[in-house]
């Protein structure tokens, strides 16, 4: 019958579990090893992707006749004994070879190119994560926030939201230049611009005529 040996140690609040599974029988067996710790399973990873066979609850894979496998994982939990259990074992199907039924091909030859029944995860594991490193990505910081204000102070008296809306309209007008329509502006932008222009005009008239109202009052007061 399949046997399971384990060892668990705790470091900085994380339990490290080492185990060996052995299949002494003369036929391939599929095994499921379950986590008994009170925490998430942190599986071994390659290129950021969990090794084949690992899931939230533990590990599942096929052991060849007479095979002995070393496995390990970590968990942010207090160690308990035993940390793992053999949930079940069953005779592996005829079609299940040990290298395509849980054990990834690259576990046998880590740098080998993935086989044609590879999964996307296999491809990342063997060819490498193509994403740029997190440190390379510029991220908005609180320090960067005052910049628009500084620019507004030095150059433009137009408030930021108005400025950005106007730039967006200008950009849309540029893009729309190749369209079949006569005007580079969409009807919505046209009417919005018109409305803003009228509003500004009214506001200026009101303030100038308002100024006219205050002046006479000032003159009347003495």
């Amino acid at each position: 019958m399949v046997t399971l040996d384990w060892r668990v140690e705790s470091r900085a609040g994380v339990s490290l579990v080492e185990l060996t599974v052995e299949n002494p029988t003369d036929c391939a067996r599929r095994v499921r090893v379950g986590n008994r710790l009170d925490g998430a399973v942190w599986p071994p990873r390659r290129e950021g992707v969990p090794e084949a066979g690992w899931d939230d609850g533990g590990f599942e894979g096929v052991l060849a006749p007479g095979e002995r496998r070393a496995l390990g994982y970590a968990s942010p939990a207090q160690p308990v004994e035993p940390p793992v259990e053999l949930v079940w074992t069953e005779r592996a199907g005829e079609s299940e070879r040990t290298d395509d039924a849980g054990w990834s091909a690259d576990e046998v030859a880590p740098d080998a190119v993935p086989s044609d029944d590879a999964t996307p995860e296999d491809v990342v594991r063997s060819l490498g994560d193509p994403r740029p490193p997190a440190d390379a990505v510029p991220r908005p910081t609180p320090d960067a926030a005052p910049r628009p204000t500084a620019r507004a102070d030095s150059a433009s008296p137009i408030p930021d939201p108005v400025e950005s809306w106007l730039s967006a309209v200008a950009e849309r007008a540029d893009d729309g230049g190749s369209c079949a329509t006569d005007s580079p502006l969409s009807p919505e932008d046209e009417s919005a611009l018109g409305a803003v222009a009228r509003r500004i005009e009214t506001l200026r008239e009101e303030t100038t005529s308002g100024g006219g109202r205050t002046e006479p009052r000032a003159r009347r007061s003495p």
Binding site: P120, V123, V124, R131, P132, A136, V137
Partner: peptide
């Protein structure tokens, strides 16, 4: 953008 490339999960391409 780099941020977009960082957030994109390549395994979802297939």
């Amino acid at each position: 953008t780099l941020a977009g490339a960082r957030a994109a999960d390549p395994t979802k391409l297939v």
